[in-house]
Write a protein that binds this DNA or RNA. Structure first.
Length: 504
RNA sequence: GGUCCUGUGACCGAGUGGCUAGGUAGAGCUCUGCAAAAGCUUCCACAGCGGUUCGAAUCCGCUCGGGACCUCCA
């Protein structure tokens, strides 16, 4: 068994082989910290968190680089070439770096809520201006870029002509042919600096009012968007690395341009495997600023948005995303999120109950084994890796988990005896559920803080209720249960007369 | 206009030739003082029309619908 991933470059699933045995270099396009992250942004970071975790499970030492874009995006290229970040800063009356800091912090907070593991390196664009300038100089020197009025543009046509011979034509990732594009590129104003419409900026001259600016051989300005990723990925991962990830919408032009820049500088395809996650949609349309349909993560967690019937917790969102294959679109909806919330709760409660079971004293013997059930469970468990190896099919793994949940609950409720399974099978369930639910899927309990005092108080109430029940004083017992429910604590009368509780 | 993807039951979604996906909701039953939870059962879908095949949600064609990219975008 070995991991297979879908490579956008070849349009097929390929066996994953790292360049250096045992080591993986992975670069994922990070956030632009000029605003708050929304639900759509959560998808790539959760998706590649799974990739990161699974690769590590497979035994790889992974260097995971995810950048912070804190400069360089153009709001409207060609118009005034305004840096997106400085534009917003003026609006909010903040220093640009203050704004950048604010949204970087918010992003990190959200990533922590989602229980994603921090990348190995999180470089910022502004921290790598020098590297970007060096790269641009090299591209100019080789004749694939030209300066015009303090800005520098990449000569796409010349690149395509020369590098097609080397098997690296422009458009190879997104599957487009350069000639087709000449007519289809939209008209933008003030494009006269460019020799061709499809040329893209490596460096932009900063207008006088522009606050974010750096000295360069071409005057004061700021870097183009695409060059930052090329500069940072090659700096930390080398001329060619294993995985480049990001959202599908970055395929063109962003990743295409990265490929071209890196090809000129390093004479190589920057990355071997290009992995792209699909979009999150809302009412069938991509969630995005330009569609005016975004739900910010803070809104999602608080429920404070007209489209939301309630708040949804970070783990619910994480689970929601994992229930779908990463290359399919995922449609947002209250009903769908609520279904995810309930499903997650059932899975998590079974998982917790399972981990608490201690069967050391239990008698297992051959005669009592339900061979059919035992074999079924073993198959379900063994498929966990099989499904993950098949292009990270988290949806199928979850489906299998949900087939195991009734078995766990039945053992817990004593509908079936633990000895219906072999001891080794039971141990496997505990082991693999923990491994996949927690370590690979990164799900966790959302209870925070120290609950020992609260638990003590609950025990007192539970004792009182037990007493009331034994006296058939159902008014008291129902009152306790009802009022706790209103506080979000559900009491359950177990078969054996015990009372358990859970936080809803 | 160009390139590409897609249409699965009430909702979200796996699934690329034959075998129950799964979750949620609904219905029934068991358990139970009641409830909740849990378990069992049920709901047996693949846009439409043709074609290929012993057999198609899955392959091919057409029709209709939805979407992405071509501009910043996760």
């Amino acid at each position: 068994m070995s991991l297979k991933v879908y490579n956008t470059l070849t349009r097929q699933k390929e066996e994953f082989k790292s360049i250096t045995p045992g080591l993986v270099g992975m670069y994922v396009c990070g956030p632009t910290v000029s605003g708050e992250s929304h639900l759509g942004h959560a998808r790539p970071y959760i998706t590649f968190d799974i990739v990161y975790r699974y690769l590590q499970y497979l035994g790889y030492k992974v260097r995971y680089v995810r950048n912070i874009t804190d400069a360089g995006h153009f709001e409207e290229e060609g118009r005034e070439a305004e840096d997106k970040i400085s534009k917003k800063a003026v609006l909010e009356k903040l220093e640009p770096m203050e704004l950048v800091q604010k949204y970087t912090n918010l992003f990190h907070w959200a990533m922590k809520q989602f229980n994603t593991i921090e990348p190995s390196i999180e470089p910022t664009a502004t921290g790598h201006i020098v590297e970007q300038i060096v790269m641009i100089e090299k591209i100019i020197k080789d004749g694939y870029a030209y300066e015009a009025n303090g800005s520098v543009y990449f000569n796409v046509e010349k690149y395509n002509t020369d590098f097609s011979k080397k098997g690296l034509p422009y458009g190879m990732l997104s599957g487009r042919v350069l000639d087709d594009q000449l007519d289809t590129t939209r008209d933008l104003d003030n494009q006269e600096e460019k020799r061709n419409k499809q040329d893209f900026a490596l460096w932009k001259k900063a207008p006088p009012e522009h606050i974010m600016r750096w000295a360069s051989p071409w005057g004061e300005g700021f870097p183009g968007w695409h060059i930052e990723c090329s500069a940072m990925s090659s700096k930390y991962l080398g001329d060619q690395f294993d995985i480049h990830g990001g959202g599908m919408d970055l395929q063109f032009p962003h990743h295409e341009c990265e490929i071209a820049q890196s090809a000129v500088c390093n004479d190589k395809m920057a990355a071997r495997y290009w992995i792209h996650n699909n979009m999150i949609t809302i009412n069938g349309k991509k969630m995005g600023k330009s569609y005016n349909n975004v739900i910010k993560l803070t809104e999602l967690f608080s429920g404070n948005h007209p489209a939301l019937e309630q708040a949804y917790s970070p783990m619910t969102v994480r689970f929601f995303i994992l229930q779908t294959h990463y290359r399919s679109t995922l449609d947002f909806g209250n009903e769908a999120l609520q279904a995810a919330e309930k499903g997650l709760r059932r899975l998590w409660e079974a998982h917790e109950a399972l981990q608490k079971m201690n069967l050391a004293e239990c008698q297992f013997d051959k005669e009592s084994t339900d061979k059919e059930l035992d074999a079924k469970v073993l198959t379900l468990l063994s498929q966990f890796e099989e499904f993950m190896d098949d292009d990270l099919n988290t949806a199928k793994v979850l489906a299998n988990m949900f087939e195991i949940v009734p078995v766990i609950n039945s053992i817990k409720d004593k509908h079936i005896l633990p000895s219906a399974l072999q001891r080794e099978t039971f141990n496997q369930i505990q082991l693999k559920m923990k491994l996949f639910v927690e370590d690979i899927f990164g799900l966790k309990s959302e209870l925070q803080g120290d609950y020992t005092k609260l638990e003590g108080v609950l025990q007192v109430l539970i004792e009182l209720r037990k007493q009331a029940k034994s006296k058939k004083d159902y008014v008291t017992s129902d009152t306790i249960r009802k009022q706790l429910m209103e506080l979000g604590i559900a009491l359950k009368d177990e078969k054996d007369g015990n009372i358990s509780y859970s936080f809803v």
